[in-house]
Simulated assay, not measured.
Amino acid sequence: MVVPQGSLGTWEWKSIVGNMFPLLIVLSIIVLWAGITLEEAEEMLGEFAILAVMVPTMVDMGGNLGAILSSRLSTRFHLGTTKLDPTDRVLWANVIAILALAATIFTALGIGAYALGVLIFDTPIALSTLLFISLVSGMSVAVIAIVFSFAATYGSYRLGIDPDDTTIPIVTNVVDVFGMVIFIGVSAAVLNF
C-alpha cells in the first residue's frame, strides 16, 4: 500500500518516531518541574487538603483546553482555511470559545471544591477564596494554553512537521507544568503560605 505524501511529512512510523522521540524526551524533563513544584507544596496541600483535590482537575482541564484549540487549528491547516492573520474572525472565535469554556469550568471547580470541602474536609477556606484561586489560576492557564497552541501549531507547520503529531504533546505537557506552578503560586499567595 502506498501512502500519499503531503507537504507535512509522511505517515511512516519511522518519520513519526524520529520527530516525536526527541520531543518526548525534552517534554518529560520539563514535566519533572511540575512534580518538584508539587512536592515543595506538600505542607500547604497537607494543611488545606481541598487544594490537593483541585490539583488534578486544574492541570487536566488546562491541557484539555489547549488540546481542543490545537486540534481545531491543525484541522484548519489541513483544510487550507487558516493563516496567521490577526483579522481572522474564526481564529478569534476559537480563542473566545476557549476562554469562555475555561471561565465556566474553573468557576464550577471552585464551587465544587468548596462543596466537597464542606462535606468531607470541613474546609476552612471560604467560597470566595476558592473561586478566586480557581479562576485566577484557571484563566492564566487558559491563556498559556492558547499561546502554546498557536506556537506549537504554527511552529510545526513551518518546520514541515504534521501539527497533529506534535501539538497535543507539547501543549499538554507545557500547560501541565505551568498549570501546577501557577496554581501552587496563586494558592500560596492567597493563603499567605
Rank of each mutant, 00 (worst) to 15 (best):
E39W: 09
E40V: 01
E47R: 15
E47P: 05
A49S: 14
I50V: 15
I50Q: 06
M54C: 08
T57I: 14
N64M: 13
L65C: 00
G66Q: 00
R72N: 09
S74M: 07
T75Q: 13
T75K: 15
H78N: 03
L79D: 00
T81F: 01
T82S: 04
L84N: 11
T87Y: 10
R89H: 10
V90R: 09
V90N: 03
W92P: 01
W92Y: 03
V95W: 03
L101H: 01
L101S: 10
A102Q: 03
T107R: 05
T107Y: 04
G110N: 11
G110L: 12
I111C: 11
I111W: 10
A115S: 10
A115Q: 11
L116C: 05
L116A: 13
G117S: 04
V118T: 06
L119K: 11
I120Q: 12
D122W: 13
D122M: 11
D122P: 02
T123M: 13
P124C: 10
L127C: 02
L130F: 02
L131F: 08
V136W: 03
S137W: 10
G138W: 12
A142D: 05
I144H: 05
I144E: 07
A145S: 13
I146G: 00
V147E: 03
V147W: 07
S149A: 15
A151M: 14
A151S: 12
S156M: 04
R158Q: 07
P163S: 08
D164Q: 06
T167C: 14
T167W: 00
I168E: 02
V171P: 03
N173S: 15
V174I: 15
V174P: 12
D176E: 13
D176T: 11
D176A: 06
D176Y: 08
D176S: 10
